[in-house]
Nucleic acid binder design. Structure first.
Lengths: 338, 338
DNA sequence: CTGAAAGCGCTTACAG
DNA sequence: CTGAAAGCGCTTACAG
């Protein structure tokens, strides 16, 4: 057959065409496509042959409409740009495409979009990364939960609820940092937390405190100042605190604030780590390029993506009810700043 | 699972429900949804009211199946992780969501996926960022073109064809860099290109040559060495070249190779820019954090995303045939390294 | 093991 | 301006 004919076939082949081609009914073709069993092996073979020869692909919209799955998963993120999110997305997509799923990514006004996706039956499941305020999309999440519609929360789960979720071990990571500080014999410590209501930051504070006390350092001797996760707040807090207090080491609840502290130290000729050690949390993209490179806690973001997607697909395809609650270990990365 | 589907269906209000609710036929409801005109204003009003009250959203699969659009756009990328791609994605999504489209993102084995998306009628259009070898997906692109299916190529277009595309002005950017070098009075120049067959790199080489000649500098006096875009190749080339040649300035076809040169210079106590100036192309995420910060050419990646999506949507919705060919200007960013 | 037939929720000529 | 009806390409009880 000519090139043109071939293309034409490829473009419009329906289940009906396959049925006519090999002399079975649409129902049987459908059974073979969906591996339903209860079809004679020879028939399966013939039909698979026909499908291949005609280059048949089921129309996804028809499949979804008639009760089948969409094989697409919605991923709701606050933004894409930051490496945190793009790395996460990378992990999510890795597994999705491997398992033959498509991903629909949404950031802008995603609450509204989520409802639309659900109602329009566009997806089989949701991966949801909360915005700053975890309670923001509580209504939608509850709705999913009520309908038993598959979803997984990524990052900070919604406090007070027991939804399927995956997050990093903030407590463990900060605890390790505390141990590191103890080993280095840093005694006079400044801890800069994130915003007061931030779950991550609170966990990091708790873990840090825990780790210090395990090494016999009382948290009450630690200067604790609240920042807002911005570079600027790190800078300002350093400026306000370091003049009046002797400090051996600073632990900021994220790398951006640690960067602010580092910039302040450089501007004021404070030697790092000679006079003051500095550490952060996140292993931000810039951290290894600073001078000195920043000691930090690296969260397994890519793995969080792959594991989240694996679990979601299990929820979608599995007959068993699953409510995974996963916590992934972090990794302490000691660099030149401590 | 049966129960689950049933529940879900019950939960969803259909066009039938709207029809019953307000006493018009499904056909008329459909007309109102699609703003078709030819409906009495009062009827429109009543129906819109009913839609709102019932919280009705059309089932996307039914719409697509019965000849409507999917309102989703496939984005094919070689990868997501690098900031180039995530920034691009950000721009693409910004416009897509604003115009009420969803995006389907795919990186892994995307050629195969693309064909599937097309056949299964899952999307209204394609945004395609070529892999290293632009000819790699030539068959698919030709197929789209033949079917008059909307798509736009991003980045390096396929040589020899006239497909709708958008890219940055590599020539103009490198030309500006040449002018900058001339102003700084750098005479002995090392140019490190990318791989020989790389379209971007060739354009940058051409633009650099052009810019130098405009300032009376003969390109033949420039040492031209071919790299492979990696940090390592920048490092190696610096090592092999800078020992035996006096060089005032290095222009690498991307920032990663420039970083390699910078690392070599630091290791060998060559002062930058005192003894050798270094510049790159791309404004990579690390470039502003280096010491000294790297002079480079910043491509308008985010804008490339927004403009590409705007044009694609015009192609999808517009009645007019459009084959946009867009080239976006870059921006020279002079930092401490030159 | 297989098929006929009834949907799934829309759109779109066709008629009036 | 509006509705009845056919159809988009699948899946899934129901029968045999």
């Amino acid at each position: 057959m000519g090139k043109f004919m071939k293309d034409k076939l490829h473009d419009n082949v329906t289940i009906e065409d396959v049925a006519n081609y090999c002399g079975y009914s649409r129902a049987t073709i459908s059974r073979v496509i969906n591996n339903e069993g209860n079809v004679k092996p020879l028939t399966v073979k013939k039909i698979k042959m026909a499908i291949k020869e005609l280059g048949y692909k089921p129309n996804a919209n028809a499949t979804a409409l008639s009760g089948g799955k969409t094989r697409t998963i919605a991923i709701l993120l606050p933004e894409i740009w930051r490496s945190y999110y793009s790395t996460l997305l990378d992990g999510l997509e890795e597994v999705a495409s491997e398992k033959n799923y498509y991903i629909l990514v949404r950031t802008k006004n995603y609450k509204e979009a989520a409802l639309d996706l659900l109602r329009a039956n566009r997806v089989d499941g949701f991966i949801i990364r909360n915005t700053k305020d975890p309670a923001d999309n509580i209504d939608f999440v509850k709705k999913l939960d009520r309908q038993n519609f598959p979803f997984i929360l990524i990052g900070n789960p919604i406090p007070g609820y027991n939804f399927p979720s995956i997050k990093i071990d903030n407590i463990g990571g900060a605890r390790e940092m505390a141990h590191h500080f103890a080993e280095r014999n840093y005694k006079r410590i400044l801890f800069i937390s994130g915003p007061a209501n931030n779950v991550d930051s609170n966990d990091r504070a708790y873990g840090f405190k825990l780790g210090l006390s395990e090494k016999g350092i009382n948290f009450s001797s630690v200067i604790h100042v609240e920042g807002d996760y911005s570079k600027k707040s790190g800078y300002e807090i350093a400026k306000n605190t370091l003049k009046e207090n002797r400090v051996d080491a600073v632990f900021a609840a994220n790398d951006r604030m640690a960067l602010g502290v580092l910039i302040y130290a450089k501007e004021n000729n404070i030697e790092v780590p000679g006079e003051i050690a500095i550490a952060g949390f996140d292993d931000a993209f810039f951290s290894e390029y600073l001078s000195p490179p920043l000691t930090t806690v690296k969260p397994p973001i890519y793995e969080m993506g792959t594991i989240a997607m694996e679990n979601l697909i299990l929820m979608i395809e599995g007959s068993v009810q699953r409510r995974p609650k996963i916590i992934l270990p972090t990794q302490l990365i000691v660099r030149g700043s401590s």
